[in-house]
Design a protein around this nucleic acid. Sequence first.
DNA 1: ACTATAAAATATGTATACATATTCTGGCTG
DNA 2: CAGCCAGAATATGTATACATATTTTATAGT
Lengths: 206, 206
Amino acid sequence: MTNGARSADQIYDILSQRIAERALAPGASLTETVLASEFGLSRTPVREALHRLAGEGLVERGARRAFFVRRMTAADLSDLFESLGEIEATCARLAALRMTEIERDGLNRMVTEMPRDYARHNSSFHAAIRAGARNQILATLALDLERRSLPWRDASLRASAARVEQSRLEHRAIVEAVRDGDGSRAAKLMRSHMAGSLSTISERLG
Amino acid sequence: MTNGARSADQIYDILSQRIAERALAPGASLTETVLASEFGLSRTPVREALHRLAGEGLVERGARRAFFVRRMTAADLSDLFESLGEIEATCARLAALRMTEIERDGLNRMVTEMPRDYARHNSSFHAAIRAGARNQILATLALDLERRSLPWRDASLRASAARVEQSRLEHRAIVEAVRDGDGSRAAKLMRSHMAGSLSTISERLG
DNA sequence: ACTATAAAATATGTATACATATTCTGGCTG
DNA sequence: CAGCCAGAATATGTATACATATTTTATAGT
């Protein structure tokens, strides 16, 4: 995620990360010339990075066509989180139909062991499901939406120990459905798992 | 779809359409300088359009980082069509849960009348379902994937009268499920409807 | 003839200057 | 004082020149 020979790619990665971490807050302005001098480059690669971010919905344009970090309404956020949940659910359904026995066993081992780093574990779990779905495009869409949703997640909720335990239980239930080859149950469980994991930030919507 | 004040947008629209119509065949090279002189513009807006097309997967890069119209393997096509089908199915499920009575009645009228222009009718039908799903992001994803799949559809199949009649029946069944508020049935029917409508071109994959 | 190597060709990557469009500001006018 | 019009300010849009990277081609040596 962090490399690309071209300066434009590096700028894209850096800005993308800053937005995800909210080092660049929603509504912050991103002007080509300012960024160019900050990075010690010309406007050209900065411009390319900004257009790319705009195409992915992380950045918007307003007066004087200036770029700024996207502000989202509650409805926008709801749509975004729901979309991500639906796509992950679709992947779970397909994974239930398509994973090999070996993959199913691996997935099962993953959720029965006690994870040390939950964030990492969670990421691996979802990656395994997406891989099991055998559809590169759906996997890419899920990753894009996830990145797009990062600046809007409620970090405090993620950290909660109770929430982590709850998530572990949900993961296990999903894996059980996958092992049974029960696609629609896997999808349903994944949908509600995502709905619970993703939570909007009610205050300061941008 | 055809307007945008900026030259870069116009170039994007034109190239996008040419690729969809296969006026630019898969594998055709798109060099910035050639296109620039063809459009009577400089490389800058052409460059922007090409990068945007590349980001959407219509165009790829190869030797010398040159751009060319994307070639797809059978597996790529299968993933693309499946993704589109799954997202439309998701929209159908949500529409079954969320459409108003008025919308359901409108949808029902749409599929009981005999359409004069089937392509137009089909497009309206899917648009209505997407609108009923009440999720702007899913709707946009569906439109993007549809545009991306256009160059690869088998036109001969679409024209078939038998196929049109079959589609009409499938539309009616979907509407029935939507009217019943039966989301999972609507999704299932939409999924198989899409699988039947979209067909890969086995010869000349690019 | 074949291989290695260096130079040319070719396409994009980047920098910079200028064009254009839109907002903001200030002063004029009613 | 309100409203409007002109011009400055500001940000992106476009054009063009130059840099860089990679592939092709030509050539020399064995």
